[in-house]
């Protein structure tokens, strides 16, 4: 039991990522309101961003840049000391993608609302069937 708690606490960011992923998927599958589904989709994408950030993160890590000191000139930070910047940079792109997806989804939701006067999926399907 103690071990289990320890594993959960020591890798808590990964557990949060899984929980967020499940919340996102749940919202997309179960919620009837289109905007709630869009929010679920965004939570899912955020979960993946958290996963990538966790891959690169390190406790007490520094930046991967040249360090300047007055007397010895400059020297490189050792690889073990700095945070891996690559997954973080990848996520800049993923954030842009998720914002764009959100934009397109909300634009279509507005179009649906203008057409049917509601965002509830059941009501819309009932209207289509008529």
């Amino acid at each position: 039991m103690h071990d289990l708690i320890l594993t959960i606490i020591s890798k808590y960011n990964y557990w949060i990522y899984i929980v967020l992923l499940m919340i996102g998927l749940y919202a997309m599958m179960v919620k009837k309101n289109l905007v709630k589904k869009i929010i679920g989709m965004n939570i899912l994408q955020t979960a993946i961003i958290l996963f990538y950030i966790s891959i690169g993160a390190k406790k007490d890590g520094t930046l991967p840049i040249l360090l300047h000191t007055h007397h010895t000139g400059h020297h490189l930070v050792r690889a073990a000391d700095y945070i891996n910047p690559l997954p973080h940079v990848l996520m800049l792109t993923a954030i842009v993608v998720s914002v764009a997806t959100l934009g397109v989804a909300l634009a279509l939701a507005i179009k649906v609302y203008h057409q049917h006067g509601t965002l509830d999926e059941d009501e819309i399907h009932a209207r289509i069937r008529k």
């Binding site: 989709m41 994408q45 993946i48 989804a105 649906v112 289509i128």
Partner: peptide, 26 residues
């Protein structure tokens, strides 16, 4: 017609698909 609604549905499915691919690459 209902292109917007079904387009939105496509966004949900497509985004889940692309996100899973991204996770796999991760």
């Amino acid at each position: 017609g209902d292109a917007a609604l079904f387009g939105l549905n496509y966004i949900f499915m497509g985004t889940v698909g692309a996100s899973f691919y991204l996770l796999g690459i991760g």
